[in-house]
């Protein structure tokens, strides 16, 4: 008895966000016919890779009923440390190995979050606010605070690798980097975990009701611990991609981005109370945030209006469904 469209299709955040994106593209194309070209799309895709990977992680945490604000600190820590390590011991280290180191570092830092949250049962926001500061401070104090533009050659090789490249008829250059595959990989892996394993279903269950999950026999501690380790690993991956593609290991970058990422996830329908969130919604949220950050200028809105626009979108995107839900509840009472 599958429906063509899900019953709640028109009231979902995903639909709303997709609608806004389409509307934006129509207006942008009307004001500048060159907007909807492969060049713009490939630019936007490149900009979306790092935010996208981080957002998938942030979504997982929200689904489990927590919130993580430390993932940008983990990302920059993993990126900078693995770069420094590679330069110090083996400058010609192949890039997959550098990536593995970054991912493992991320997972390790995530495990620290996980330990405090799952085993000591401390509130997630408090823990990650603390570790955000600690990770970042530790990085700048003990590992280094210099920007490194002389990256290991293998990282530069990675950033040159492209899946497709070319020049449009109008003479504009476009390319889709290897890193896009990383995002795709993260999406597929996370989708598999969330929808095809009992671990993933347990994450949704915990987000829905921790007490109920405990009562039906979900191993709440280890499930939560996994979430933070996994998010840490994703942050490590996002960090090293950010460094490679940007061709610079900057210990001051990324931190500060966490709220935009969480905003993208919330726009996509994940709820802060836990239990709700989809990959589709998250990716649409990321797309919208990236478009606003990069293309607002095309429709004639000055870039200084960026954060105002993002803020309004969040208010609208979360306010409209919340208002509707409240009306429903009032009717039911």
């Amino acid at each position: 008895m599958k429906r063509w469209l899900p019953k709640d299709f028109w009231t979902r955040n995903e639909t709303l966000v997709a609608g806004v994106i389409v509307l934006f593209c129509i207006i942008a194309t009307l004001s500048d016919p060159r907007f909807l070209t492969i060049t713009t799309v490939s630019d936007l895709l490149r900009a979306a890779i790092v935010i996208g990977i981080l957002a998938v992680g942030a979504m997982l945490v929200l689904v489990s009923g927590g919130i993580d604000v430390s993932f940008t600190a983990i990302a920059v820590f993993a990126m900078y440390t693995s770069t420094v390590l590679s330069l110090a011991i083996w400058p010609d280290m192949p890039w997959p190995l550098i990536f593995v180191i970054a991912v493992c570092l991320g997972a390790l830092l995530g495990a620290i979050n996980g330990f405090f949250i799952a085993f000591l049962k401390l509130p997630t926001l408090i823990v990650t606010l603390g570790t955000l500061s600690v990770f970042r401070g530790f990085l700048l104090t003990f590992i280094g605070s210099q920007r490194i533009s002389d990256l290991p050659p293998a990282m530069r090789d990675f950033s040159r690798g492209v899946l497709a490249r070319g020049t449009t008829e109008a003479g504009n250059f476009y390319s889709i980097p290897w890193a896009a595959l990383a995002l795709l990989f993260v999406i597929v892996l996370t989708w598999f975990i969330l929808h095809k394993t009992m671990l993933g279903r347990s994450i949704y269950a915990i987000g829905g009701s921790v007490e109920s999950a405990r009562r039906v026999g979900v191993n709440v501690k280890w499930t939560q611990f996994f979430v933070y380790v996994y998010v840490g690993a994703l942050a490590g991956l996002a960090g090293i991609i950010h460094g490679s593609v940007g061709r610079m290991a900057d210990p001051f970058s990324l931190v500060g981005l966490e709220l935009s990422v969480i905003a993208a996830v919330v726009l996509g329908g994940a709820r802060l109370i836990g239990g709700y969130g989809t990959l589709t919604g998250t990716l649409l949220g990321v797309a919208l945030i990236v478009i606003v950050q990069n293309s607002l200028i095309v429709v004639g809105i000055p870039t200084t209006w960026q954060s105002v626009t993002i803020g309004l979108l969040i208010l609208l995107g979360t306010g409209v469904p919340a208002y509707r839900a409240k009306q429903e509840a009032a009717r039911a009472g």
Binding site: R201, Y204, A205, G208, S209, E211, S212, A213, V216, G275
Partner: peptide, 8 residues
């Protein structure tokens, strides 16, 4: 309270 998962 039935101990159900409202989101599932």
């Amino acid at each position: 309270d039935f101990s159900l998962f409202p989101n599932l």
